[in-house]
Design a protein around this nucleic acid. Structure first.
Lengths: 151, 151
DNA sequence: GGAAGTATCATGGGATTTTATGGAAGTCAA
DNA sequence: TTGACTTCCATAAAATCCCATGATACTTCC
C-alpha cells in the first residue's frame, strides 16, 4: 500500500499512547520510517501527520537555513517549531503531546483519517461533523451541475 | 531523526547551564557532533544555533559569491566572528555566554525552537509573541487565497 | 462450506531507562 | 588562595520498552 486511506478510531490510554493503524504504519514503513511527523492543522482544529519526507521537502522548498535572508516564510517557522517527530514504539504506538491533543479537543479516542500522502488525527465527532458538511457541500455542488444519478 | 523540530523550554541554572533538548542532541550526534555553534540572529532578538556542517556550508556559500557584493561578505565576517562553539557536557548541557543571553533577554528559562537545519534559542515569551504574529500573517494570506478546502 | 487453528492487532499494566536539573567535588589559571 | 569553569553524582519525573490478553481477521483442513 502506498497511500494513507480510510478512517480508524483508536483509543488514547492514560499514558497518552495511541496505536497508529497498522495500515498507516505499513505505509510509513514502506518509505523506511519508524516515526511520524505531526503538527497542528492551519486552522488548529485537528492534527496533520506525515513522514519525514514531506517535512524535508518543505524545508527544501523554503531554502533551508540562511541567516542572511530575513524573509524566511513565516509559515515555515511556525510549522517547524510546532512540528514534532514521534517515534512509533515496538507495539505500533505513539504519544501525542498533551498540548496538541487539547488543541484538537481529543480525549479518550481519536480518528486517524487517511488523506493520501498524509493523514490527520481528529476528535472523532468533530471529524464526523466536518465530513457531514463536506458531503453536503459536495452534493449541493453536484446538484447544481448534472442532476443525473445519485449514489 | 534528521531535522530540528518542535519547541522545548528548559531552565538556565545559576551557573548558566541549560540542557540541550535530547532530540536536538541526537540530531547533532547523528552528524557526529558533540558541540553546537551559536551566534546572534541578524536582528539580535534571539540566538541562532546549528551544527558545524551548516556553518561550513554557509561559509562556502558566501565564499563563492561575487567579491563585489560587499555587505554580504562583511556581514559574513561579523557572523563568523560572533559565533561560538559550545561543547555539550556529559549531561547534555551547554553554557551560553552571558552576553548573548542578555542580548536575547533570556533569564531563567529559554526556548529551543526547531527550524529544520538549525534551531534558535529564545526568551520564551518573546518567541510566543513572534509566533503569534507569524501565524496571523499566514492566516491572512490564506484567507486572501483560496477559501475552498482546508488543511 | 464450515470449523478449528493461527497470525495480527489494539490495548492494558508493570518494569526499565532517559531526561532535566540541582548540588558537590575537582581542575586550572591568575 | 580565589574565582571561574568543568566533571561527577544524585534524584524525581517522564518517556520507553517489554510482556500479557482479548479480539478480530485470516488459513487450513476436513
Amino acid at each position: 500500500m502506498a497511500l494513507f486511506l480510510s478512517t480508524y478510531v483508536n483509543k488514547v490510554d492514560k499514558k497518552g499512547r495511541v496505536s497508529v493503524p497498522a495500515r498507516f504504519r505499513s505505509v510509513l514503513a514502506g518509505k523506511g520510517y519508524e516515526s511520524v511527523i505531526i503538527f497542528p492543522t492551519v486552522n488548529g482544529d485537528a492534527i496533520d501527520a506525515c513522514g519525514m519526507d514531506v517535512m524535508e521537502g518543505l524545508l527544501e522548498k523554503i531554502g533551508g537555513f540562511d541567516p542572511l535572508s530575513e524573509d524566511r516564510e513565516s509559515y515555515a517557522d511556525v510549522l517547524m517549531s510546532d512540528a514534532v517527530e514521534l517515534s512509533i514504539d515496538g507495539d505500533g504506538r505513539i504519544v501525542i503531546p498533551e498540548e496538541m491533543l487539547n488543541a484538537a479537543g481529543i480525549d479518550g479516542t481519536c480518528a486517524f483519517v487517511g488523506r493520501g500522502d498524509s493523514f490527520q488525527i481528529w476528535q472523532p465527532e468533530a471529524f464526523e461533523a466536518r465530513k457531514k458538511i463536506a458531503r453536503e457541500r459536495t452534493q449541493a455542488r453536484r446538484a447544481k451541475g448534472a442532476e443525473a444519478s445519485d449514489g
